[in-house]
Every structure is written in structure tokens, then in C-alpha cells.
Amino acid sequence: MKRVTLCALALAVPLAASAAPESYTLDPHHTYPHFAVEHLGVSLYWGRFDRSSGKFTIDRAAHKGTLELAVETASVSTGDNERGSRPRTLDEHLKSADFFNVAEFPRMTFKADSVTFAGDSPAEISGQLTLLGVTRPLTLKVERWVCKDHPFSKKPMCGGNASGALKRSDFGMKYGLAAVSDEVRLYVQFEGYKD
């Protein structure tokens, strides 16, 4: 009986270890939230935030996970950042009180504690997005999820792509709704290293 118990314990220990939640820190150089809006109902206009940080945890056995992402709104970038003969660039306009109001709200955050899984991989991340001081629910669909060791450093890493959509007017961003669509599509590329 004693031998059977020892054998069971010996088998259970590694299983328990692998079932523990794993914590990852997002790599700011390979994690970028992108957004797309319709301009004048004609083209899909793209932009991204150059600076963000955060962490996520994943418990594959329990099918649970969390995500915390903080985005510096002043890092918004559309590529239109040279004034030329104009008094302002599009990036400067996006930073003003008309849109991201970066002087008052320098950060937007996404905190998620509900992750649904498809097999062993996360499929949907649901949480709360806080933008311009307003918090609303947001769900990101995980379109790509890969975990492996970094080919050179051999550090364990996970990453992928997720997307979602929100209405900017829900967050009080109502400027220019006739010209720039209310719906904002989000596309997040992310990579994180195991802590």
C-alpha cells in the first residue's frame, strides 16, 4: 500500500507542476496594439500605439487565464507625423482632446480575467477596457497562439494575435463621427516571456 501511494505521488508531482498557472511578461518591442477606422466611409485607416506593457497568466489545465495590458496613448502613431505646410499632423490631432486626450488620460488599460479555451489554446479573452476615464467590456478573439522556446535564448515564450472591436462613442470619443467611423477595430500582436 505504501509503495502504491509513493508511486501515485511520484506521478502526481510533475502533473501538478505542469498544471500551475504560468506567468508571462509582455515584450514591449514585439507587442503592439493596432487600430483601424473607416475614413469618410472610404478607406480603412490604420494606426498603432508604439508603447505598451503588461503581463498575462495561463493555466492550461484549469483553462484559466488573465491579462493586463497598459497602453501609452501618447505613443499613437499613424505615420502622419510631419507637418509640412500644415499647422498640425494627424498624430498631433489624435493626441488632442478631440480624440485620445493624452494630456489628461495618458494611459488606456485592458484587464481581463475571463479566458475561454479551444483545446489547450486560449480562444477568447474578455475583460474591461478603460479609455478616457470610461470603463466598458471588451472581448478579444485570439486568432493565433503559439508557445515555444525562443530559438536563440531558449527562454519559454508565448505569443500571437488577437482582435476585437469597440464603439469609440461609448468612451466619450465623439469628435468627427461623420467622417471617422464610430466602430474601431483592434488588432493586437503580442509576445511574452515566461517569468
Binding site: 499647422p87 498640425r88 498631433e92 490631432h93 493626441k95 488632442s96 482632446a97 478631440d98 469628435y175 468627427g176
Partner: peptide, 8 residues
């Protein structure tokens, strides 16, 4: 407006 805020 010239200083980048249409709302103000």
C-alpha cells in the same frame, strides 16, 4: 483649431 483641437 490651428493648435490641433477642433473641439476646443
Amino acid at each position: 483649431v490651428l493648435g490641433a483641437s477642433a473641439l476646443i
